[in-house]
Amino acid sequence: MNRLAPAKNEGFAGFVLWSVAAFIVAVFAWLMADILIHGAAQISWDFLSTAPEKAGRRGGILPILVSTLLIMGVCLLAALPIALGTAILLAEFTPEKSAFGRMVRRALDVLAGVPSIVFGLFGNAFFSVYLGLGFSILSGGLTLACMILPLLIRTLEAGLRANPARDRLAAAALGLSYGASLRHILLPGAAPALLAGLLLGGGRAIAETAALVYTSGYVDRMPGSLLDSGRALSVHIFDLSMNVPGGDQNAYASALVLIVLLFIVNVTTAGIVSRWRKTGLAI
C-alpha cells in the first residue's frame, strides 16, 4: 500500500480533502436515498411479475425484465468467443512489439471511447437495416456486444496474464501443445477472470440505454422470439420519466430494480476478485 503513517495535524489541506470526500458521499447518499425511498414504496411481487399497463403508469415490469435478460444473454454469448480469442492472442501469443497486437489494442481503445449513441446509430444502420434484423432483441444484443468487447477483453487478458510463468514452462517441458496447455492449465487458471469479465460486461449491458433505443426498440410486450422488439429496463425508465406523464413512481421503482441488479453484480465481482487476490494472483 502506498500509505503514510497517520498524522495528527493535517492543516488546511486535510480539512479541504475531508470536506470534498464528505460532500461526494453526501450527494450520492442523497441520490441513493431518493431512489430507495420512492422506489421501495412501489415494489412488490406483483410489480416484478405482471405486465405494464397504461404505458407503464400501472402494472409491473415482467416483459421488460425478460427482454433485458434476453438482450444481455445475446450480448454476452456473441461477445464471449471473440473476447476470449482476442484475450488469448494478446496475452499468450503476441510479443510486446508486434504490429498486429498494437493494431488490435488501438482498435480496442477506440472502441472503448465510442459514445453509446454512436453505437446505437451504427447498430441501427448495420444490424437493423443492412442485415435486416429490424428493431429486435438480436440487434440490440449484438450492438451491445460490440460495445462491451474492450471491457471483456481487458479483464480476460489480465486474468490469463496472471497465470504464473512456471505453469507455462512446466506445460511446455511436458511436451503439451499450446492448445492443450490453454485448455487444461491456462484457461482453468483464468476462470475467475472469465466470471468477473462476464459479470462486468453484463453489468455494462444492463446499464445501457442510448445504444438500445434505436436497435432493440420500445415495445413493452413480452417478446415472442429474439427477432421481436423488446424494451430494456433502462429504456423503460427513460420512457416513463420523459414521455409518460404520471410515470414517475414506476420509473423510480424500475430504477431501484436496476440498481439492485447492478449492486449484486458489483458485489459478486468484487468478491471474486478479492478471493482471487488472496490466492496470490492479481488482476
Binding site: 444492463i206 446499464a207 440505454t209 442510448a210
Partner: peptide, 8 residues
C-alpha cells in the same frame, strides 16, 4: 450506476 438513473 446507469446514466438513466442519474438522469431520473
Amino acid at each position: 450506476i446507469p446514466s438513466v438513473v442519474y438522469g431520473l
